[in-house]
């Protein structure tokens, strides 16, 4: 099992797209702090900014792209064709001949992904929160360690969510479209909360309650939010594993 995790780490970190995701996430979140600084300062001064303790954590949002991209490419890279002259050639064939026990393979891949995303999430959180403190200083309270941990956990769960969805569809485009459109452009999940408060429990937005106070109109306790999101991710991973085991490669 250890050798499988090592192989999966090597595979993931050997992909250019994985690095693009990690670096983009790591750079984008702190950069947004700078870009938004003047507007944020005004909002804090006239009291229109909500809970000031959310500020640093709100800025983390864009960095989550990194976690999603990692979750997607860990799987989509297995399914891309190795070349025009070999239509059935995919890395997955090599992967499954090297590790034919599929549940173990998925566990090893998930472990490697979790490690990388946790490191990327921690680095982004530390950099972004540090920067927010530098820029806005006394206007906001210091971030509580429990909330930082909640944010990193959200990161990891979102990476695993992207991993599960990509395994189910065997295609990264579907996952990226669903997750990125939903998280950055038009949040279907958020719009649904206007229809029914239950939509606040959808996997992508419920997790935000782990580290943010003001999310939509519904208040969910951080631990409840963490448990609900974990349950979603576990269920989707279970479905993905069941399909992966049954399908022909």
């Amino acid at each position: 099992m250890v050798s499988l995790v090592r192989a999966e780490l090597r595979k993931l970190l050997g992909l250019r797209t994985a690095w693009v995701g990690m670096v983009a996430g790591l750079v984008a979140a702190p950069a947004l702090v700078f870009v938004n600084a003047p507007a944020t300062r005004r909002a804090l001064a006239d009291g229109t900014w909500g809970d000031p303790s959310d500020l640093g954590f709100q800025s983390l949002g864009i960095g989550l792209l990194g976690a999603m991209i990692l979750g997607v490419v860990a799987v989509s890279s297995e399914y891309t064709s190795t070349g025009e002259d070999s239509p059935d050639g995919r890395q997955l064939i090599t992967t499954l001949t090297a590790a034919p026990r599929r549940h173990r393979l998925l566990a090893a891949k998930g472990a490697a992904l979790t490690l990388v995303v946790a490191v990327q999430g921690t680095l982004t959180a530390v950099a972004t929160l540090g920067l927010v403190e530098m820029v806005h200083g006394a206007a906001i309270p210091s971030p509580a360690p429990a909330r930082v941990a909640g944010a990193v956990l959200y990161w990891v769960l979102l990476g695993l969510l992207a991993y599960a969805i990509t395994l189910i569809f065997r295609n990264g485009v579907v996952t990226l479209t669903v997750l990125i459109v939903n998280s950055s452009m038009v949040s279907v999940s958020y719009l649904l909360t206007k229809v029914t408060p239950l939509a606040a429990y959808l996997p992508d937005i419920v997790g935000a309650h782990m580290f943010l106070r003001d999310v939509g109109d519904v208040r969910i306790a951080p631990v409840t939010a963490g448990l609900v999101m974990t349950a979603w991710v576990a269920a989707l991973l279970g479905l993905a594993a069941w399909l992966f085991q049954r399908r022909d490669a």
């Binding site: 992909l15 190795t82 070349g83 070999s86 050639g89 890395q91």
Partner: peptide, 11 residues
Amino acid sequence: LLDGSGAHRSR
């Protein structure tokens, strides 16, 4: 040895 190299293109 099956179809193709079995390696991801970017590796």
